[in-house]
Design a binder for these strands. Sequence first.
DNA 1: CTGAAAGCGCTTACAG
DNA 2: CTGAAAGCGCTTACAG
Lengths: 343, 343
Amino acid sequence: MGTEPEVPANRAPTLTDVAKLAGVSVATASKAINGRDEVKAATRARVLKAAELLSFAPNALARALLGGRTGTVGLLTSDLEGRFSIPILMGAEDAFGAGQVSVFLCDARGDAIREAYHVRALLSRRVDGLIVVGSSTDPRPPLAGTVPVPVVYVYAPSADPADISITVDNVGGGRLAIDHLLACGRRDIAHVTGEPGFAAARDRAEGAAAALADAGLTMLGGRPYYGSWDETWGRAAAHIVVEQHPEVDAIFCGSDQIARGVLETLRDLGRDVPHAISVIGFDNWDAIAAHSRPRLTSIDMNLERLGAVAGRRLFAAIDGGEPPTSEQYPGRVVMRDSTAPAG
Amino acid sequence: MGTEPEVPANRAPTLTDVAKLAGVSVATASKAINGRDEVKAATRARVLKAAELLSFAPNALARALLGGRTGTVGLLTSDLEGRFSIPILMGAEDAFGAGQVSVFLCDARGDAIREAYHVRALLSRRVDGLIVVGSSTDPRPPLAGTVPVPVVYVYAPSADPADISITVDNVGGGRLAIDHLLACGRRDIAHVTGEPGFAAARDRAEGAAAALADAGLTMLGGRPYYGSWDETWGRAAAHIVVEQHPEVDAIFCGSDQIARGVLETLRDLGRDVPHAISVIGFDNWDAIAAHSRPRLTSIDMNLERLGAVAGRRLFAAIDGGEPPTSEQYPGRVVMRDSTAPAG
DNA sequence: CTGAAAGCGCTTACAG
DNA sequence: CTGAAAGCGCTTACAG
């Protein structure tokens, strides 16, 4: 009766517990566990064994209180479906190294108030930095108030050019798509895309037009067929294009969903895709692109890479070296069966 | 020379800074900020103004070090696309109250080692609890090792029945789908679903069979048409079903992707959906269901609700009241245009 | 090589 | 109503 258990049952073991068990001071226990070399090998072994026995996990909070670094980052998104955020999160996780840095994911749901709330919570948790993921490629207002930690904007750039933004080069992406169609020997190319109110639509169209111009060509109809981002528009647009331009031999679509609709109409009309008409989409959204008839060639925006770059840039900013600069990446063509040389 | 600035430029303001500016002790400042009532109104006002001036945000880490509660939760997933995790995360966020609790999202990518790594990191960050989201509805192994905080499994139950799991009632979901088709006056109903190796496929089929039996009916062909979860199988299966059972007047599909394929084939065959044949899917995956022809009626698993329940149960467990128990929810029918009374 | 002491930013009894 | 003091779990100079 009255004998104290060596390991208090009820709370997580602390360094003090470990030190006691190993018969050393907490200072020494700390050094042993953190791999400092001013500690005798035998002592270190003893401490490590004690820590093992207690399954001691150092309290990161206490550590952070000293060091000023929490190893924690906030990822703020408004991308309700996670279609963009998740790959970006994964890329960032990779850049940080699993377990080194943990990320708080907060969904602001497009609401500025909610966003401010989350930012406040994250700051009081002393995140080392913030990644802000937008849900469209349009510039978004910078975070409200002064944020005392580095911020990197991903996918949607900050409207403030002084902020650092890692974005998709949609102009380059548009070029890529057209260049691929040209490589397939296509010449009579239409561009069906989403709402012109979106920078993504305008930029991809711009890149497409430029690439065509470089080849001495212009878009069928002289301009993009703007509409909405979904299949319904894709279906309608395909009818329109084929009717107005029976010579069409390729269609570049601003999204995979549009492309999917285009594909369906071409199928209904009995047009041979990819040989008579080649079709390329944008997003490389597997659920959409991998099961269409035929399977859809598409531009992949490399979102994971975007996330990884954002993570690295954020790190650099946290470490306070050269302030990183904004960057753009054009993506890549993912070939499936909807594009091919004229056959 | 030598005059100290009131606000040190380089670091986040602390309670001490606030107290100094307000001309009170830190103890009093603390009480004022935390709304304790043992402080004079005028004093509180002074402190609050000082905090405002410095845009002071209390250091949650220091606070947590005292209280033992961090207001932080880990969400462990392997759902690469975030299709399930994101709604669940959002539900949990809602349950916690935005800003009250922040959640660490970690993706283990189906790798046990990586998962263990994340768990370790989360524990050293002293999360108050863990939510584990599986990527299929099959039971998953419980978290390795002893975890000193409450854990709630969502979507995929833990293989250990002693753990608490919040899951979709797939048997109930299957019933729901059939009941809806019966309500539309359908009698000759086929079930096309995914891989029989998945509990989700078997459970939904079981519920479907039971609902049919209750109505004195059996599935067309006497058993489900098992295959894979994608559109390709849906297209093939529809051909098979129509050929083997020309009398078919409804098809219950185990996923929206399968349903989408079924719809395409029925369209190719010139069958009138929803009047000649009604089709219902499962998942209510908007990108798939909202743009098919006709738009797809589907079972929604209410993942947000699942997340909200998980959050509340986790809270209850953290607060240490009654240990919560496992629960199942059947989902609901979302009507679109692919089901209707025979016309 | 080891340990006593100070301190990170906060809260909480406990005096006054 | 206010404040001095102790302490949460750790690390880091600084003596020894």
